[in-house]
C-alpha cells in the first residue's frame, strides 16, 4: 500500500487557481523531488499537505487513512487536525527556528508539549522527558551537531540552523518529511552540508518530498521526480526519465533553462 495518496488537490487564492488538480502517490521509503519553475505551486502543495493551507477540493491519505478530505475538513475539531498533521513534518526554506531556545530545546519543545496530553503524564513525567531528550540528542548527533546542542540559533551558521530544523521536524517521527527548498537560503559551501544530511536520510529510507532547484542532487538522491508547471503535474517518473529523457515538451524547456 502507498504511504501517501494525494487525489485531485485544487487550491485557489482569490481568482487565481494555483493548484489545478494534483494527484500522485508515494511508496514508503521513496524520496520524491518536486521541481518546477517559480510560481508553479510547489510551496503551496507542501503547505496543503501540512495543513498550512486548506485545499478547496481533493483528499490526502496516509497509510490508507484519509487525513484530509475537503468535504469534511471544516467540521474537524482543532485537536483532531493537530493529531492528523503530525503525519507530516515540514522544513522551511528560512529555517524558522525559535530564537529564544537552544538547538536542543528547539528539538524537544513540541514533544514536551505533546507529552502533557498523555494520560499518565503526571506519574511518568521524568521518564518521558528523559526519553525525549535522549532522542533529541541522538538526532542532533546524526545531524553532525553534537557540540552545538546548547547554542542559540543566532550563534549557528545557516547550514547548522537548517540541520537543527531538520532534527526538529524529525523529532515527532512523521511518516513523511517535507522540505521546501531547504538550501536556497544558504551559501554554496553550506548548501553542501545540508545536502549531505538529506542524502544520508535517503539512504536510511526516510520517506521525503523535497522541493528543490538542485538538479544534480535531485538526480542522484531521489527515487522519483515530479515536474510541476502552472499548478499541474506535467511529468512524474524516475529521475533518469524526468531529468534525463523527458517525454513532455514543457519539462524539456524547463530543464533547458538549467543548462545555461
Amino acid at each position: 500500500m502507498a504511504i501517501l495518496d494525494v487525489k485531485d488537490i485544487r487550491k485557489r487564492f482569490g481568482s487565481t487557481e494555483v493548484l489545478k488538480g494534483i494527484s500522485f502517490s508515494l511508496e514508503r521509503g521513496q524520496v520524491l523531488s518536486l521541481i518546477g519553475s517559480s510560481g508553479s505551486g510547489k510551496t503551496t502543495l507542501l503547505r496543503c499537505l501540512n495543513f498550512l493551507e486548506t485545499p478547496d477540493t481533493g483528499s490526502v491519505a496516509v497509510n490508507g487513512e484519509v487525513i484530509f478530505d475537503a468535504a469534511e475538513h471544516a467540521a474537524l475539531k482543532e485537536a483532531e487536525i493537530r493529531r492528523r498533521r503530525l503525519h507530516f513534518g515540514l522544513v522551511f526554506q528560512s529555517f524558522n527556528l525559535f530564537p529564544q531556545y537552544t538547538a536542543l530545546e528547539n528539538v524537544t519543545l513540541a514533544g514536551r508539549l505533546l507529552m502533557k496530553e498523555e494520560p499518565d503524564y503526571r506519574t511518568r513525567k521524568k521518564e518521558l522527558t528523559a526519553q525525549l531528550e535522549e532522542r533529541a540528542r541522538a538526532l542532533l548527533v546524526r545531524m553532525g551537531l553534537a557540540d552545538r546542542m546548547e547554542n542559540y540559533p543566532h550563534q549557528l551558521s545557516g547550514g547548522q540552523q537548517q540541520r537543527v530544523a531538520i532534527a526538529r521536524a524529525m523529532a515527532l517521527q512523521p511518516d513523511i518529511l517535507c522540505f521546501d527548498e531547504p538550501t536556497s537560503a544558504l551559501d554554496p559551501e553550506l548548501t553542501h552540508e545540508v545536502l549531505r544530511v538529506l542524502r544520508s536520510l535517503a539512504e536510511e529510507h526516510t520517506t521525503m518530498i523535497i522541493v528543490t532547484h538542485e538538479m544534480a542532487f535531485a538526480r542522484d538522491v531521489s527515487s522519483r521526480v515530479i515536474f510541476m508547471d502552472d499548478g499541474q503535474v506535467v511529468e512524474d517518473g524516475p529521475p533518469e526519465q524526468v531529468l534525463g529523457a523527458p517525454v513532455q515538451e514543457r519539462t524539456r524547456r524547463f530543464l533547458e533553462s538549467y543548462r545555461q
Binding site: 501540512n50 495543513f51 498550512l52 482543532e78 493537530r82 493529531r83 498533521r85 503530525l86 507530516f88 513534518g89 515540514l90 522551511f92 528560512s94 524558522n96 527556528l97 525559535f98 530564537p99 529564544q100 519543545l109 513540541a110 508539549l113 505533546l114 526538529r168 521536524a169 515527532l172
Partner: peptide, 30 residues
C-alpha cells in the same frame, strides 16, 4: 514577529495558545 514562527509551531502540532505563550510572547517582550 515573522509568520514563519507561528507556522513552525503549527506544523509541530502546537495549539495557538501554546504558540503564543511558548514561542511568540518572549520575542514580543524583547
Amino acid at each position: 514577529i515573522p509568520k514563519g514562527q507561528q507556522e513552525a509551531g503549527l506544523v509541530l502540532g502546537m495549539t495557538r495558545g501554546q504558540i503564543f505563550y511558548k514561542v511568540t510572547l518572549l520575542q514580543v517582550i524583547k
